[in-house]
Design a protein around this nucleic acid. Sequence first.
DNA 1: TAGCGTCTAGACATACTGTCTAGACGCTAG
DNA 2: CTAGCGTCTAGACAGTATGTCTAGACGCTA
Lengths: 208, 208
Amino acid sequence: MEARAGRRAPQPKDDGRDLREVILAATRGLLDERRFDELSVADILAAAQVARGSFYFYFASKHEVLAELVRRAIARGHEVAQPWLTHDEPDQRRASVRHGISHGARLWREEAPVLRAIVENWRTDPELTALWRDQMAGFTAATTERITTDDATAPGVDPAALGAALTWLGERLYYLAALDVAPFADEDTLVEVLTHIWMTSLYGESAR
Amino acid sequence: MEARAGRRAPQPKDDGRDLREVILAATRGLLDERRFDELSVADILAAAQVARGSFYFYFASKHEVLAELVRRAIARGHEVAQPWLTHDEPDQRRASVRHGISHGARLWREEAPVLRAIVENWRTDPELTALWRDQMAGFTAATTERITTDDATAPGVDPAALGAALTWLGERLYYLAALDVAPFADEDTLVEVLTHIWMTSLYGESAR
DNA sequence: TAGCGTCTAGACATACTGTCTAGACGCTAG
DNA sequence: CTAGCGTCTAGACAGTATGTCTAGACGCTA
């Protein structure tokens, strides 16, 4: 119906809430305690104190709510991605890589419920699939850029493939940490292992 | 109802099929073309030409069907896991690691529909969660064993954490390859990158 | 021949999704 | 002032899914 496209700015309700934001906040809150696939639209309606019609006025499905939550979490993540692009002197590489990895860990700590949900559900919806794959492609491009700029890695290894592998490795380990899976639930261990793999596979530096 | 526990060996139907096997085969066939979350029990019934009552006589849910399919795929995988445990002379390490990675790729190629399904759905069911996490824990233990036996890796890096990281890296890249995601859809590239990361993070060998 | 295990067809209660109707309320254009 | 539009509510609705249940058919075995 494209109801959203031509609509005016939402007029505040009695209590001044913007229903679209209320729905997003309520869904986010529910994700703190339950998996996305366990949530029904009815659960969201109850949590947000909103009528069914209002929900479908703003969102075509609960997947679209998740998409918006993810876009916002990702927007916060862009600040994090920035340092990865900078070029460093060899003796600062380890600190720089470690710094980026720690930033990733912090983002995942703060946005865990939403990121957990997208990682678990991106395959169930075309829009979510495109969203997450684009996001990973962006990180891959940044990592690959870093590899080629530093002229790192061994001959015979495709820089783009290595960049993609390190990106998806991060996705997986941060996700497992968010699930409290040992040994990654301990953030120091997680950062240490990720840094080790990045440094050795990129620069061949096994020394601490 | 525990119907399965005390039942006698199934008596062959007119056409001699064992319904349990028919249901498993039909579900496996459907997974070639559709995601597990897209399948309804009714779809399985139609594909297997079996009545609703029969399905629930053998399985408590479609998740339980997937669990059995995964157990069988995993059983095949145990042959693959064996070589990882052997200890090699330093000059044969690369060939050995590469060999194991190629075996993993082959298993994933052959069992792609089932493994794709478990990777996408293990979080949606407690039994599947335990199944997949146990499986990953097994691979992690084998990898960690190899690390400590070879006395590989840098000081300050927990061998168990490195073993787990390499295990989950494999899970993710094989899965992406099964989805035809670039650049991992090309098996040579996949094996090359995985071998590179294993060799450098374990032995610090960046040379080809 | 009676009973048990297997199997079928189909009804059933329950739950979820997305659509739709009818009406309430407030703002704004004419 | 009033008519209309956008927002919102409550709730009905059709369609689809799950898991349970009943009634009956068939074949083997005690």
